[in-house]
Nucleic acid binder design. Structure first.
Lengths: 356, 356
DNA sequence: TTTGGCACTCTCAGCGGTAGAGTGCTAGCA
DNA sequence: TGCTAGCACTCTACCGCTGAGAGTGCCAAA
């Protein structure tokens, strides 16, 4: 079970106290609009939700909610639509998080436990699980150690005398890099034999275990020339690994957001693709999410990036600052099924935490 | 320079001999339509291409081309649009491949040579280069050995007594997998010490070098119990590696196809996403492309997958059957700038070949 | 405080008319 | 025989209009 202790992010606490009726109306408007994508009118509301008051009463409540900035009007004679603030209030005060089905959680756990997967496969699986379960686009960034630490080095010779360094970090991440034969020869003072390399690798494995990039760089200087040269490469690899930059992102479920009427026009989709392909944007989220764990919700214009004004993001970190840290979440129109998406993100993140 | 010897794929050779005028008209129609996305009429054609005959003459040529199935009519009084067959004829017989700028090729080569990258970075770079240069969506699948061969094994112990196997293949691919502690203990007849594991790894490195999955499996049986157990895992990893299944695909430039008017509606985009996200479809292409190298062009309905009837694919293999093999290419509307896309795909594939 | 009633507003779909682009055909010309 | 000019015809895209429908806001009464 996901722990429920952590409440969703409070970005700007809604400044208002609502009457019981107003709360009920807001909730009904949000839930109806999330389902139908059609502005909801007073008559429809009483009909669909079996309310015991007349449409006129609802209208007056709606007018109040609009004055408070929680609802809007596409045009004078259309139904009401929740504003970003309305969604925010809903998420924080009104929403009953739908418990994930026991069947769902079991299924998800099962998928993850089934096979011996590499960590990348886990992330891919996490993305597809999130997407399928929330019917929105899912994003999972790879886990990046905040401080990559050396665990093991292996020097491999490939077919045509190319040499490759494979470094494993303490968190299980594997990074590889080709070594430049010329500078290797130079460092060894002549063509490096396999024995030389084995010796260098053994030396480094003995010396560098548990060290971070700068430590490895310093320690490397005291070693034999060949080992020192390789230590430099290793340090670079560690630096790259804990650089905050996220190059690769696993995504899934793009087709779901494509189906949403708000993105039918096509042009509104651009920002979504930007986020999902290149992940500069997710990088900006990383510090925020690292500071406080738990599930974060960013609704529409709350996002500083104006291109994202019609999308909501629900995301959470996974891993811990000591081990490795990544981001996972879903992205969809502001008109999103928050009561389902939030617990799902929380649950998948907890599953991933257990695995790592 | 890319070698020009290999001609683009001949799927169904156009069955017709055209007059010089018909060829000129077809070429003009294709090139105009590719630029403008607007059905092209006879008057516009003479005007824009400075032809020395009257629109009526062009009309008659167009009517002939339409009878041959090379052009179509959206409706009675609209201009002409190339049919799939028209594009095919154009690609095979009419197109003058635009030489890539010397500046372009230099720039691309430079990007690739600049840094010591891991192979995944190369593929990502290939995708972004292709996309930027062709202004279409690019797809690059990872290189998969047709017959993965063992090069090196390393058993790493992570922080909390988890053990991980890292295997390098002869082509430089790295695959990793967590080992189940329980069955490891069972195989070792007791808790496996680091020395035991080192010994097993050394044994396997000596015994398995150059072997394929089934060979490794057989050889493994003759080894000490612990080594035999790990050899089983290694064989599985090799099998996975040469399984034809492609899980991961690098893509870029989705936004370009999104901008194309033919995909503005949104719904036509679904198949594109399918291809770019999950790559079952690319798998089907792999055998075809393996049989004959070179650049392949699949135009619209030539594609057996009906969902792709408005999409053209231009792709090529990279690597060699002996080493590792992947697919790279671009995807866009049938109305695509073939004269630019084809040489670009060819060039990037050759660059990647050199690197691998 | 709630409700019913009523006037008002705005969108959406359908309709007709028009301008413009383009075709097909035919008769004449080199 | 091949090319061209002219002409009638066709179809779309666009514009403005209209009526139906949905919904609101407000007011007076319960």
């Amino acid at each position: 079970m996901p722990e429920r202790s952590q409440q969703a992010a409070t970005q700007s606490r809604p400044p208002v106290d609502l009457t019981e009726r107003q709360r009920a109306v807001l909730r009904a408007v949000v839930e109806d609009y999330v389902l139908s994508a059609v502005p909801v009118g007073s008559r429809a509301l009483v009909r669909r939700y079996g309310l015991t008051v007349s449409p006129a009463t609802i209208r007056s409540a709606m007018a109040d909610l609009e004055a408070l900035g929680l609802l809007t009007h596409p045009h004078t004679s259309a139904g009401r639509v929740p504003s970003d603030l309305g969604y925010r209030y809903y998420v924080e005060a009104l929403m009953r998080e739908s418990e994930l089905d026991r069947a769902d959680t079991l299924m998800i756990r099962h998928q993850f436990s089934q096979v011996q997967l590499t960590s990348n496969d886990w992330l891919r699986l996490a993305a597809s699980t999130l997407a399928a379960s929330t019917r929105a686009a899912a994003v999972v960034t790879p886990a990046r150690s905040r401080r990559a630490k050396f665990a093991h080095l292996q020097l491999v010779d490939l077919a045509d005398r190319a040499r490759m360094a494979v470094v494993v970090l303490t968190d299980g991440t594997v990074v590889e890099r080709h070594l430049d034969p010329a500078s290797l020869t130079r460092a060894a003072g002549g063509p490096a034999s396999q024995e030389d390399l084995d010796a260098a690798a053994a030396e480094l494995n003995a010396e560098l275990t548990g060290l971070t990039a700068p430590q490895a760089r310093r320690r490397g200087r005291k070693l034999t020339p060949l080992a020192a040269h390789v230590a430099g490469a290793v340090a670079e690899m560690l630096e790259e690994a804990d650089g905050t930059s996220i190059e690769e992102v696993f995504t899934d479920g793009l087709a779901y957001v494509l189906d949403q009427p708000e993105f039918a026009g096509g042009t509104a989709l651009r920002p979504v693709l930007e986020v999902l392909q290149h992940a500069d944007f997710l990088e900006q989220l990383l510090p925020m999410v690292t500071r406080r764990g738990g599930v974060h919700v960013i609704i529409g214009r709350e996002n500083p990036n104006d291109a994202m004004r019609e999308v909501s993001l629900i995301f959470a970190p996974y891993g811990t600052p000591e081990r490795a840290l990544g981001l996972l979440g879903v992205l969809g129109p502001t008109r999103m099924a928050y009561p389902r998406a939030i617990p799902t993100v929380r649950f998948v993140s907890s599953v991933l935490n257990d695995l790592i």
